[in-house]
Each structure stands twice: as C-alpha cells, then as structure tokens.
Amino acid sequence: MNNTLSGVIEFKGVKKYYGSGEATAYALIGVDFTIHRGEFVTIMGPSGSGKSTAMNIIGCLDTPSEGEYLFEGIDVGTLSRDQRALLRRNYIGFIFQGFNLLGKTSAVENVELPLLYRGVSSHERRELALEALRSVGLEHVAHHTPAELSGGQQQRVAIARAIVTNPLILLADEPTGNLDTAKSIEVMELLRAFNRDKGITIIMVTHEVDMAAYASRTIHFRDGMIDTKVLS
C-alpha cells in the first residue's frame, strides 16, 4: 500500500438539515475536515453534537444537504444510491457497538457475509474468512455461534468480518461500548495493529478518552460543528 499521506476523506462546508423554513433542524453546520490515508482518527462529542451524522455520511449511509463529501476525490453527493452502495461494499468496513452478528450462524459464516455480497466463490470465501479469524486470534472458534462466544470474542469476530474484504476505510462506532476494560484494550490493540500493519484508515466514534488515546488525533464535535477549542 502507498504510505504517502493523501486526503481520503474530505468534508467541505458540509451541512445536514431536516425540514424547511422555521422547522429546519440542523445536524451539521458547515463542517470542514480532512482525514488522510493511513490515519487513525477518533470522533468525539456529546449526544446530539453531529458526530453520528458525520459518520453516516462518511459511510455513504447518508448524503450532505449542502457542501461536498469527497471520497478519494470523488464527490459522493453526485453518486446514485446504487453507486454509493458499491462504494460502501468495496471500500468501507463497519464495526458496531452491538456486534450485529447473525445469532444462528457460525463465526466463520458471519465473517463470510461481505464476501458473499461480492460474489466470491464459496471455497475462497471460507479461506479468506478463516484467515480473517486467524488474524484476530479466533480461528479455533470458527464454527461456534455468537451465543457460544464472550462479548470480547463477538467483537473480534465483528472486526474479522469488517476487515475480510481488506477495506480502505474502517468505521468503528463505539466498538468498546459493551466491553469491560480488559476486552476493550484487546479490541483497541487489534485496531491499532490493523492500522499500523495493513495501512487501513480507521475512523472511530467513542465517548471514552482512554480509548481515543489509541488514535493519532481526535476530531471534536459540538452543536453540529467542529469544536476548535478542544485540542486534539
């Protein structure tokens, strides 16, 4: 992977609002920032600050009302819904606080899902999924269901699922929110290793200052804007 820093995510005057006239409610108010290829960035802010809206836009789950969101120089707002879905499928991995694993499906089958959507053959899917589980230290529980795994193991399966496609961007939404301190540290060490060793750009929302410390910098949101008074 090219290690030269370049803007992979750019917000230029991004606004997001709902309704019109006096009923207009703003979630983002003219947000500008750049995230470089290979960075590990956290996004922090109180509830209602706009951080979740920003993450939804980054993940191509939503689009700006005004302004530009550039992904590798492409204005995502000009893409169709299908084009955004392809961008999301091919370049972005997601990790959620609630793991979002299929309960009656084995760990390895959960990890295979993104590859299934890409049309990868069953044999190659299984090999890649096992390799992803191996990378998070869980190949030995490949055929266990989520109910047979601890919370920390479930989150590591979710990480394996997110990285099995070798995404350019990894979006993590409160990935340690349901874990104790020891398991949280395990997850953060894994994320830092994938960022360092694979060059995956990681963008993580968290409320936990000690977890944010794993990142190279933090973007702080408040009232729909970047809070420039808080030092990264």
Rank of each mutant, 00 (worst) to 15 (best):
E124I: 12
A147C: 09
D82G: 02
I92S: 07
E68A: 10
Q155V: 05
E148N: 09
H123A: 14
P64L: 05
L115M: 13
I95N: 02
S65F: 00
Y91V: 00
A158R: 10
G98V: 11
D62Y: 12
M55R: 07
L130Q: 06
V120M: 06
L79I: 00
H144F: 13
C60H: 02
G73Q: 08
G67H: 03
P114Q: 12
M55N: 04
G137K: 02
L101M: 05
F94Y: 13
R88Q: 13
F96E: 09
N56Q: 10
V108A: 13
L138K: 02
L149E: 03
N110W: 11
R156V: 00
S150T: 14
G98Q: 15
A85S: 15
R156A: 02
D82K: 15
L87S: 11
I57H: 01
A160Y: 09
N100E: 13
G151T: 01
L102Q: 13
V157G: 09
G103H: 11
L61Q: 00
G93P: 07
R89E: 02
L79E: 00
R84G: 05
N56K: 14
A107Q: 11
T63D: 07
A147G: 10
P146C: 01
L128P: 00
L87K: 12
L87T: 15
E72H: 10
T78F: 04
E112Y: 10
D82C: 05
G152D: 03
N90D: 15
L133I: 02
G151L: 08
A147D: 15
G59M: 07
D62Q: 08
